[in-house]
Design a protein around this nucleic acid. Structure first.
Length: 241
DNA sequence: GCGACAG
DNA sequence: ATCTTGTCGC
């Protein structure tokens, strides 16, 4: 199935495809040393079908930026919890195809196997690009866990159906944890170790943080002004008139 | 039926 | 996700 055709799928068909992808997941430990790593993210205006995708490449473990790639695309697939990949992966793959050199591993903003069908966006992206990938989410989708301690790198396993599907990691003191899970071709332990090395003073791991800054930048540069939106703040200030 | 629900 | 200011806590 080509990502460019995802928007033609119904939710039921997308779920059927996830069941198909699930069988192909490989969580064998990555045996090759990591020299390059990439972070990916998407930005968009909620009143527009335009999505801005970006990937930032770094050398590893230093995390010095060595390249970027972006793509401005459109999607009609709505955001549906559990089907995020069908909305965001097409644009990400467009950016991916523009990369001169592909990284040894990718970090995606969302879940890996910490998903009801074990097919979060990191797993999905890793499978269709045949690239080791890790999911790092800012909130939980599924799974039960005890709140990790409040010290940096305190962690707590996430369970679903008796299996460990991810790790809630305290990336920064006094901040909510982030949720780490392997996506494809990397183990649970390696995923946590790699993400820990990508934490550089902020709650969000550097690859994703930089990708987020990049996509927001290109969205503003593209002139997001044309996509009119009335938020509560503006609305209240216009009431007198 | 009810509550939960990545971005 | 995205909009925006102020404010609280470390």
């Amino acid at each position: 199935m080509q990502p460019s055709r995802y928007e033609n799928l119904t939710a039921a068909q997308a779920i059927a495809y996830q069941h198909e992808l699930r069988r192909q997941i490989d969580l064998t430990p990555l045996n090759k040393p990591i020299q390059t790593i990439g972070g990916a993210d998407i930005s968009f205006n909620k009143y527009s079908e335009v999505v801005y995708a970006g990937i930032v490449l770094f050398n590893y473990p230093e995390l010095k930026v060595i390249g970027t790639a972006t793509a401005i695309s459109k999607t009609k697939f709505p955001y549906i919890s559990g089907l995020l990949a069908f909305r965001e992966v097409p644009a990400l793959v467009e950016a991916w195809n523009k990369l001169e050199i592909k990284p040894d591993l990718m970090v995606l903003d969302g879940q890996g196997i910490a998903h009801e069908r074990r097919t979060g966006i990191a797993t999905h992206f890793g499978l269709i690009t045949n690239t080791p990938a890790i999911g790092s989410a800012k909130s939980r989708l599924t799974g039960r866990y005890d709140e990790p301690g409040n010290k940096p790198f305190d962690q707590s396993p996430m369970y679903d159906n008796g299996e460990v599907i991810g790790i809630a990691l305290r990336s920064k003191i006094n901040c909510n944890p982030i949720y780490i899970s392997p996506g494809h071709r990397v183990s649970m332990g390696q995923s946590v170790d790699i993400i820990k090395n990508c934490i550089r003073g902020y709650r969000i791991p550097e690859p994703i943080r930089q990708a987020h800054l990049l996509v927001n930048k290109i969205r503003i540069e593209d002139g997001d002004n044309n996509n009119r939106q009335i938020n509560l703040f503006d609305y209240n200030h216009r009431l007198p008139y």
